[in-house]
Amino acid sequence: MKIYYYVHTGHRIGLDRFRRACTIIRALGDVDITLLCSDFRIANEARHFGVDKAVGIDVVRNIPHIANHGDKLIFDSAEANPIMLEDMRNFFSTFIRISDNKDDVKMDKEFLISPYLSGDGICNAVVIDEKYFEKKDKTVELSYFFGDDDYEKDLEKNLSFIEDLNPAFQLGFYYFLDYEEMLRKRFKSCYEFEEYDEMIQNSKILISSSPQAILESLASGAKPIYVQREDYTRDFLDFFESLNIPVVKNYKKEDLIEIISSINNINYFKTQHTTEKIVQFIKESLNL
């Protein structure tokens, strides 16, 4: 009986789910887990994130081609419809699902990890690696991380939103080579993809469309500003509101400028250390 962790990744979805999957797998220590990614490229890079076993499977429907009936699965994706989810609950002996939807409902034969929900068989928590809670000197006034994906080059289309603020810029994973070079020329200071942790921990203010980066920035003691992309889920808006994290929509620069000018007056709420809570919940659910 094997344990698998499926995560939705790709050039149209980014790496937010992947980053938290790696956080969970690292925190589980010596538990033997195979990470299944819907993108072969990031599966090949998973070892650099502390994950020894990773396989690209292209689409979620290929999970049964890897796993066997009775295996165990941690599932982090919004791809599956209710019928597919029910099939998974019947196929796997243990099914743990990670959800960001505040209107979600825990179903029979599954366990749930959620920032919104609580109750029997539910772990109310968000996934943030413990390393981001280690306070370090903030040496960069302002950083910008659009996200790991920009297939439509929306970042370039909306450069006027941020460019004259002269932020340090974090490059993403799924950018085209010529696109990366253009962005390096447009920003005076750039963090490479491999310098993501340094960017999070060094930045006093982080402007980002990545929900995971926002949470990690907040944990590090910074003052994050979330930019809601049109092509991204809105599931985090209520949660960010509960943490007093300001949100900018539709690339409204006047809203961004106003937030930055008054950011020291914003009472950001602190995120909790929940890694051990999540690890204990998963181990108990998997009967480890």
Rank of each mutant, 00 (worst) to 15 (best):
E152M: 14
F146L: 10
N158F: 03
E152I: 10
E134D: 11
K106E: 05
K157Y: 01
G147I: 08
K157L: 05
E134H: 11
Y151N: 03
E152A: 14
T139G: 01
E110V: 00
V126R: 02
L159T: 08
L155V: 08
D108Y: 10
E152Y: 15
I122G: 04
K135S: 10
D148N: 13
K106M: 10
M107Y: 15
V140M: 03
D120G: 02
E156K: 11
L142G: 08
N124K: 14
F111R: 14
L159R: 07
V126M: 02
L142D: 07
Y144S: 00
K106P: 03
E156V: 12
M107G: 13
L159H: 10
F133I: 12
D108Q: 12
D120W: 02
I128R: 04
Y151L: 13
V126E: 00
C123G: 10
L159P: 09
G147D: 09
K138N: 11
E141K: 15
I113P: 00
V127L: 10
M107I: 12
D148E: 04
K135V: 12
D129Y: 02
F133T: 11
V127E: 01
D108A: 11
E110Q: 11
D129S: 14
D108W: 05
F146W: 12
D137E: 15
Y151T: 07
S118W: 09
M107R: 15
E156F: 08
N124P: 00
V140S: 03
E134N: 12
F146M: 07
G119R: 12
K106D: 04
F161D: 04
C123I: 10
V127D: 00
I122E: 03
C123L: 13
F133W: 13
D129C: 07
D154C: 08
K135D: 02
D154L: 06
M107N: 15
S114P: 00
D129R: 03
Y116R: 12
F146Y: 15
E156T: 09
D149N: 14
S114R: 00
G119C: 09
E110K: 02
K131E: 14
D137I: 12
G147T: 08
G147S: 09
F111Y: 15
F161M: 04
I113Y: 06
E141F: 09
E130W: 11
S118T: 12
L159Q: 08
D129V: 05
G119Q: 09
F146D: 03
K138Y: 06
D149V: 05
K135I: 13
K131A: 06
L112H: 01
I128G: 00
I113A: 05
V140L: 08
P115L: 03
C123R: 03
A125T: 08
D120T: 07
E130C: 09
K135P: 01
E134F: 11
I128E: 00
N158W: 02
E152D: 14
D137N: 13
L112K: 00
P115D: 01
S143L: 06
S143E: 01
D148L: 02
S114T: 06
D108F: 09
L155S: 06
V126P: 06
D129I: 06
Y116G: 04
Y144C: 00
D154E: 15
G121T: 05
D154R: 13
E141V: 05
F145V: 08
F145H: 04
K136V: 13
Y132T: 01
L155E: 09
V140W: 06
F133D: 08
L117A: 13
D148W: 00
F133M: 12
Y144N: 00
V140N: 04
D137S: 10
K157R: 15
M107C: 14
I128D: 01
D150F: 07
E152G: 03
